[in-house]
Design a protein around this nucleic acid. Structure first.
Length: 155
DNA sequence: ACTTTGATTGTTTTG
DNA sequence: CAAAACAATCAAAGT
């Protein structure tokens, strides 16, 4: 087991973070300060990038795509997405792991493509940053426009 | 906006 | 310093 090496050398396996399976770190008691998180996120100010690949759909979402079609056929009267979501959620939980299996597999494939697209996207970003000399560390890569925050929803 | 779950990321805490 | 754990945000579709 390579996991044994992790704790002694520090060879961290990205993405293979296993929950305290053989060793508990200790219960967290102090309530996290969410305010900072909220604030930090705002500071990030994600710039609108149409080329930026969106997140890959999870197994549930892959199932949803199919479910929506089916559900619409069976319930042409129901047009609310909320109704479909609830129905899908219930159906999803009703499905066995084996039935969800194929969906998870598809989700994994989508994720793999996403990573690939991100790689390409990152490269482009790097290239752009490259031509910008030494002034890129700041994610405020705001060239020209002086507007701030892209708060579209939240009414 | 509502609605579903999951997956990823971000922040905090502890060892 | 690193890993673990928790918290939050985001992914789509139709009215």
């Amino acid at each position: 087991m390579f996991l044994v090496f992790c704790r002694m050398t520090g060879a961290r396996v990205k993405g293979a973070m296993k929950p305290a399976e053989d060793r508990k770190v200790g219960k967290r008691k102090a309530p996290l300060d969410r305010s900072s998180i909220r604030k930090a996120k705002k500071e990030k100010k994600a710039k609108k990038d149409p080329s930026k690949p969106k997140r890959p759909p999870s197994a549930f979402f892959v199932f949803l795509e199919e479910f929506r079609t089916t559900f619409k056929k069976e319930n042409p009267n129901v047009k609310a997405v909320s109704a479909v979501g609830k129905a899908a959620g219930e159906m999803w939980k009703s499905m066995s792991e084996e039935e969800k299996g194929p969906f998870e597999v598809k989700a994994q494939k989508r994720k793999a493509e996403y990573e690939k697209q991100m790689k390409d996207y990152n490269e482009k970003q790097e290239i752009s940053a490259n031509g910008r000399d030494a002034e890129e560390v700041n994610d405020e890569g705001n060239e020209g426009s002086g507007e701030e925050e892209d708060d579209e929803d939240e009414d």
